[in-house]
Design a protein around this nucleic acid. Structure first.
Lengths: 139, 139
DNA sequence: TTGCATGCAAAGTTTTTGCATGCAG
DNA sequence: CTGCATGCAAAAACTTTGCATGCAA
């Protein structure tokens, strides 16, 4: 636990927000003006891997495009990043009820939800048997 | 509908996949070797705005970090991008049932799900009254 | 002394944008 | 002629990485 790491952790935990790396960098730099962005990213990764903080990754890193314009949920493969259509109805009733609950519990205006199922596509399921230990999952 | 736009649309619709822009670029370039990446992005955006195809955007553009390491869902503000905790229980029973259904209907191995509620945070709700027409939503 | 974390800078990736050219109405 | 779409290149935004320095065990 270096001084830099400690300050980064304090700033991440300070409020109920979910800061971006550059927001964290700005706040930490007020206390440690010589710290670098590389150090911030390295320590955030390290502490996330130790379970001290949580890293919120975007559901997938790149935009994708779909010829199917109907509303539907997606299946994301956590090995290869592939996206497939989920053959279940959009707008499950339970989720609409949850939206209403959230509208009452928070001061947010709720307009919808985004739901994705995380798993392994058939090809990656097949390869999973002889997968080396060290390989990291995408999600 | 220019020739480039037509070929891009055909490649996007060709299969049930959800291609990235560079995958589309590679496939289109086999048929139109002089096409540029800029044209691909511009036409994908245009056709998405016309409803011919669907653009799948990542749920948020940047990584974020959270001092709260418990499992919980999130609320995303579609104006300012803020992320807040959703005060509802993780792992709703209906969603676990859906996961089981998907495991039977597809050849995916399902390991979990990612659920986010999309709306406007209190600050952006307040500003919404005198918002100019042209401003685009994040989601 | 040894090793690891740092600061700095550069590179990498994905997406957007400015600009001159050129085709079509 | 006019306007819009193109190709090309550069820029922008975010994240990772190589490397020399320096502190600490």
């Amino acid at each position: 636990m270096t001084p830099q790491r400690k300050v980064i952790l304090e700033e991440v935990c300070k409020e109920g927000e979910h800061l971006t790396a550059d927001e964290i960098y700005d706040r930490v730099r007020k206390r440690l003006p010589r710290i670098s962005m590389g150090t911030v990213y390295r320590n955030l990764d390290l502490m996330a891997s130790q379970g001290l903080i949580r890293k919120l990754q975007p559901d997938y890193p790149q935009m994708r495009f779909d010829g199917n314009t109907r509303d539907h949920y997606h299946l994301l493969c956590m090995r290869c990043g592939r996206i497939s259509d989920a053959p279940v109805a959009h707008s499950d009733n339970a989720l609409e009820i949850l939206e209403g609950t959230l509208g009452n519990l928070t001061r947010y205006g709720i307009f919808g939800h985004k739901l994705e199922f995380i798993g392994l596509c058939p090809e990656c399921m097949e390869k999973e048997k002889n997968r080396p230990e060290d390989q990291r999952l995408l999600f």
